Computed example of a mutant assay.
Amino acid sequence: MIDTHVHFWNFDPARDSWITEEMNAIRKDFTPKNLIRTFNELKITGCVAVQANQTENENNFLLRLADQNEIIKGIVGWVDLKSKNLEERLSYWSSFKKIKGWRHVLQAENSAFFLSDDFVSGVKNLKKFNYTYDLLCYHDQLPDIIKLVDKVPNQPFVLDHCGKPNVKSQDLKAWAENIKNLAQNPNVYCKLSALLVEADWKNWKEIEIFNCFDVIFENFGPNRVMYGSDWPVVLLSRPYIDWFNLVSKYASKCTIQEKENLFLNCASSFYKLESQDLL
């Protein structure tokens, strides 16, 4: 099994200002050593490490961790997609095979940023290097995210955290309609991740999460959905194992093949993880 969405960091209160005082549970360092015991207990064989800092130094940090820790099977890094020398940077990073794709924190940007010609052009450059792109956005940004993916045919995208629906309010109608529209693009996958963070951290109900899962599976189907935890951010609500067990409970109605797709095959195919590394 592969967890397609984990973060590692050496906490810096100035740099990591998004981790506010109310997020005290994650205002500290998190390394693969903090995760390995849980992975062993759950028989999770590896993870995809996703950028949490928007500098190219983040790529070097994650590559060093990957060299030292076998559980990191792939990396989603950061690069300036608007840069005039983007192709040169992508060519440079392409020699590091653990880097599978890129992400920018689009939830912190407006549509003028990610629908701009230079950003769209940057995303178009990814295909020639066989890179994926992770879409991180809030539910109310989905209409513009749909416009973005439609501008870049044949680029593999994955929607992080189901597009961050408003789990807490259960106001899901507009989100569900946008998910339906986005999923019509066969090049877009979805990560089943992080919904506890979008819920009432301490008082969420299982049905609130499962209502969102229903929409995702109905639209993306069993072949374009992949498991992710968003660890350590998930710790704001519950221990890692609680999220894993929640996803596993929902998946209990799935066929064996569909479970394999959710926990392994979709991730392996999308991120082009090496088969020998998955053992």
Rank of each mutant, 00 (worst) to 15 (best):
V215I: 13
F8Y: 10
A66W: 00
K164V: 03
D117L: 13
Q54T: 06
S94E: 13
L264T: 09
F119W: 04
R103N: 08
G122C: 02
L126W: 06
W204R: 09
N57C: 08
S229C: 07
E21N: 15
F157P: 00
A112S: 15
V247Y: 00
P186A: 08
L172A: 01
C47F: 08
S83H: 07
L62R: 01
L42E: 12
R224I: 07
W18V: 14
A14N: 15
F113E: 08
N223E: 13
V167N: 00
F113A: 04
E260D: 14
E206K: 12
L136C: 11
L235T: 11
H104N: 10
V247C: 05
W175T: 00
W175C: 00
V123H: 02
I72Y: 05
W93C: 06
R15A: 15
L246I: 06
L196N: 05
N203D: 12
I241K: 13
K73D: 13
C47L: 14
A52P: 02
D67K: 12
F30R: 08
K82R: 11
F217Y: 04
A174P: 05
C266L: 08
L126E: 05
W9N: 03
S111D: 14
V79W: 03
T132K: 00
E56F: 04
F157H: 08
K43M: 15
V152I: 09
R27H: 14
K147E: 14
N57I: 11
K259M: 13
L142R: 02
W204S: 06
L279S: 06
N185V: 03
I146Q: 07
T38F: 01
L182A: 04
F270A: 04
K191Y: 04
E22Y: 12
D214L: 02
I216D: 00
D144I: 10
E274W: 11
F114V: 11
D3Y: 01
T20G: 11
V105H: 06
K128V: 12
E87Q: 13
R89E: 14
P143K: 07
R89C: 10
C190W: 07
Q141R: 10
E208G: 03
N40E: 15
Q155C: 11
L115K: 04
K168H: 07
L246P: 01
L264C: 07
R15W: 15
S275F: 14
Q68F: 05
V225R: 00
Q257K: 14
V233C: 04
V50M: 05
S252H: 14
L279R: 09
S17G: 11
T31E: 07
D16A: 09
K73G: 07
L182S: 04
G46Q: 08
E218D: 14
D160W: 00
A176C: 06
L42G: 06
V234S: 01
V225L: 09
A66G: 09
V158W: 02
R15Q: 15
E88L: 11
K73A: 08
E208Y: 05
D12T: 04
S275M: 15
R37T: 12
